[in-house]
Simulated scan of single mutants.
Amino acid sequence: MLNTLKKVSLLLLLTGFTQVALADGPATNTLDVDSEVGRGGLPVREDNPNELKVCADFDNLPYSNGKQEGFENKIAQLIAKDLGKTLSYQFWYDRMGFIRNTINAHRCDVIIGTVDGNDMLLTSKPYYRSGYVFVYRQDSGYNIQDWDSPDLRKGIIGVVGQTPPSRPLNDKGLLGNSRPYRIMRDLNLPPSFIIDDLVKGDIDVAVLWGPIAGYYAKKSSVPLVVVPAPEYEKENIHGKEYWNISLAVRKRDKERLAILQEVLDRRHADIIKILDEYGIPHVPVVEGDSVEKKGREKGDVIPKFE
């Protein structure tokens, strides 16, 4: 029985998941991914004009999961309902190969959230902007407002290795105080694992990407303080802390993007309301601040699996 479960788990990881649902209705998970469809030189899925087919992670809250509980699930539902389309999903773990095996294999057509100007995709106008934050326990008595705050030197700082906050921490001589976490999340751990370590006292401060930190701090069993980290791009170009976030389609899918852009524009207030309900920190979009326009060498793209 155990070997069978292991084989099923491996199959899920390698092939992804497909889920089909009405915009407001229940969904059914199946393992009906055809691994021969979408590969180079082979047939691709036929587009259904009545369907909004979204590419998403099966277990990556606050973004998405198989139960459609994430904020990107809610945005997808809003878009599908606005367009009068059936909402369906191609699930795949959001790590190396995600874009290749989902949207570029035509197994789905839309990614709800990616960095603006992602050069592998055609992105919409950004619909929100977020950044990295400091998170610490309220009962710690800390008062951390910037990279020079003395309280940053008092304890262990949890930070995902090679992400933008590692630059100011290095420049300020704080990497020796830090506990690095792998940039590729261990799928045996919940997406909340760094905040979990903060709550347990294994670390004293976390410097995390805002959507992840804000969501799990809001759900924490102990009160946590979330403080936006200052932008560090001018001091170190690779320390860029804030990013515009956009919806994305395939490079040549300009007509689909135009339709989706109209929904993003007219339902922007509703989308911001969803972000607020999930505790997602956000600031006004900065026009022209895209990876594509600034060049990939001028900053680090934020990982959704951090």
Score class of each variant (00 low, 15 high):
residue 222 V to H: 11
residue 50 N to L: 11
residue 132 Y to G: 01
residue 138 Q to Y: 14
residue 277 E to T: 10
residue 132 Y to A: 01
residue 65 N to I: 12
residue 248 A to V: 00
residue 62 P to K: 05
residue 124 S to H: 08
residue 189 L to A: 07
residue 8 V to T: 09
residue 12 L to I: 12
residue 271 I to C: 10
residue 187 L to I: 15
residue 114 T to L: 07
residue 247 L to S: 06
residue 243 W to D: 00
residue 24 D to F: 14
residue 38 G to C: 13
residue 227 V to Q: 11
residue 221 S to G: 12
residue 218 K to H: 03
residue 19 Q to C: 10
residue 23 A to K: 13
residue 238 H to N: 02
residue 174 L to W: 07
residue 42 L to Q: 07
residue 281 P to W: 01
residue 202 D to G: 09
residue 136 Y to T: 01
residue 194 I to Q: 03
residue 182 R to D: 02
residue 177 N to T: 06
residue 237 I to D: 01
residue 75 I to S: 04
residue 16 G to Q: 05
residue 13 L to S: 12
residue 10 L to A: 13
residue 281 P to Q: 03
residue 75 I to C: 09
residue 265 D to N: 09
residue 197 D to W: 14
residue 165 P to M: 00
residue 40 G to K: 15
residue 116 D to M: 11
residue 221 S to P: 06
residue 298 K to C: 02
residue 197 D to E: 10
residue 53 K to G: 00
residue 186 D to M: 08
residue 82 D to M: 10
residue 27 A to V: 06
residue 51 E to H: 12
residue 224 L to F: 09
residue 98 F to S: 07
residue 145 Q to P: 06
residue 17 F to L: 12
residue 162 Q to P: 03
residue 93 Y to C: 09
residue 183 I to V: 15
residue 65 N to C: 13
residue 282 H to E: 02
residue 280 I to P: 06
residue 287 E to L: 09
residue 225 V to K: 15
residue 240 K to A: 01
residue 135 V to H: 03
residue 268 H to I: 07
residue 245 I to T: 03
residue 243 W to H: 13
residue 268 H to K: 12
residue 123 T to M: 04
residue 11 L to M: 12
residue 55 C to T: 02
residue 292 E to Q: 15
residue 26 P to M: 05
residue 117 G to P: 06
residue 233 E to N: 04
residue 41 G to P: 08
residue 228 P to Y: 01
residue 194 I to W: 02
residue 118 N to R: 05
residue 72 E to R: 06
residue 172 K to D: 00
residue 220 S to M: 03
residue 268 H to N: 11
residue 3 N to S: 13
residue 138 Q to G: 14
residue 27 A to K: 08
residue 272 I to R: 13
residue 275 L to Y: 05
residue 48 N to P: 03
residue 228 P to L: 03
residue 58 F to W: 14
residue 83 L to N: 01
residue 278 Y to A: 04
residue 84 G to V: 06
residue 151 D to I: 14
residue 146 D to E: 05
residue 237 I to S: 00
residue 220 S to L: 04
residue 263 V to C: 07
residue 119 D to L: 12
residue 242 Y to L: 01
residue 196 D to T: 08
residue 257 L to V: 01
residue 96 M to T: 09
residue 2 L to M: 10
residue 118 N to W: 04
residue 202 D to P: 07
residue 298 K to Q: 01
residue 92 W to M: 15
residue 210 G to R: 04
residue 130 S to I: 04
residue 257 L to C: 02
residue 290 S to T: 13
residue 2 L to C: 10
residue 76 A to G: 07
residue 98 F to L: 07
residue 203 I to H: 04
residue 156 I to Q: 01
residue 184 M to T: 07
residue 59 D to I: 09
residue 24 D to I: 10
residue 142 Y to W: 08
residue 137 R to K: 15
